[in-house]
Design a binder for these strands. Structure first.
Lengths: 166, 166
DNA sequence: CAAGATTGATCTGTCAATCTTC
DNA sequence: GAAGATTGACAGATCAATCTTG
């Protein structure tokens, strides 16, 4: 990908680098663009329509699915792919907006439960149609059902590699 | 995706929302995970090996490809999918590290050229093998060549929709 | 005045350190 | 002491406002 002149052919360390072919490079650059622009497009829609970031929306959405609209902070962090620290800051902000409430687990004081409030649920209900419509128009409806199937499989495989590497 | 109870079937506004099916939802969630975790995995490798963020690496890489390792700020912004503002802050930092230099275009004072320095080029040369190796191991080598072809086409199609929507 | 670029204020995320509960 | 969670300081991104050149 970068232009490295003559050094490209030089072996450094133990084994020579297998550079990307032209086609691999092109595919990789397209994928990077999707990874950057797609979240951005969704952020814009959510911010405009509901004053929510992508991850904030998903926090509300995951809570709405939990029993009694409640999840432990650590569970919520995993479900939203956020660090516990990030989630803690984020939930504090949502709490100050009245969308979420926190309470210590009565059965075990080490856990904190995040609870979706009525206002939070209402905001989610109001913003979900617009968000889902956008996900459809930008992603789902642009792919055939066999492409979706393949995207599913490919994503799963990549995730396996990514998770294994960390 | 969120659990909306009875409201799910209620028509709000003009037309009913077409919710995602179970399979669409599953695929979408996997894709979101990839969009979050893949950049993170690459950031970690670059940060550890070269003290560069993903976008900083790409700034250096795009500059290395320009004639005389030079690009206008506005071109560089497009190539790296960054806003001009973000790029300006970022290049200022790279400049203070001696990896890039900025100079006003002598033929038209409105343009600023970013130039890759010797030190910047050396850092790129040193870090490229590790980065490419990681891109291969996490993405390229995990997919068959027909999958890569399909990923290429699908990404292109999605990008078209995303760009058209903004 | 339009386009390229920069700036400063503000907000968000990260990292390391800390606190609490079992 | 280990796991869950929070905190504060710092780094980086965004947005709106501004500056500059042609």
């Amino acid at each position: 990908m970068p232009r490295l002149n003559a050094k490209r052919s030089r072996t450094r360390g133990v084994s020579a680098t297998r550079w990307l072919t032209g086609e691999e490079e092109a595919t990789w650059r397209l994928l990077v663009q999707v990874m950057v622009k797609l979240p951005w497009a969704l952020e814009c829609q959510l911010q405009r329509d509901a004053s929510l970031s992508f991850i904030e929306y998903h926090v509300l959405a995951r809570l709405s699915e939990g029993r009694v609209r409640t999840l432990r902070m650590s569970e919520l962090a995993m479900l939203t792919n956020a660090s516990l620290s990030r989630l803690s800051h984020l939930v504090k902000r949502l709490e100050s907006r009245g969308l979420v409430r926190r309470e210590v687990d009565p059965t075990d004081g080490r856990f904190t439960n995040a609870v979706l409030t009525k206002a939070g649920h209402e905001l989610l209900v109001d913003s979900a149609p617009g968000h889902v419509t956008r996900v459809r128009s930008l992603v789902i409806d642009g792919l055939s059902s066999s492409e979706l199937q393949q995207l599913h499989d490919a994503s799963k495989r990549l995730l396996g590699r990514i998770d294994a590497s960390s």
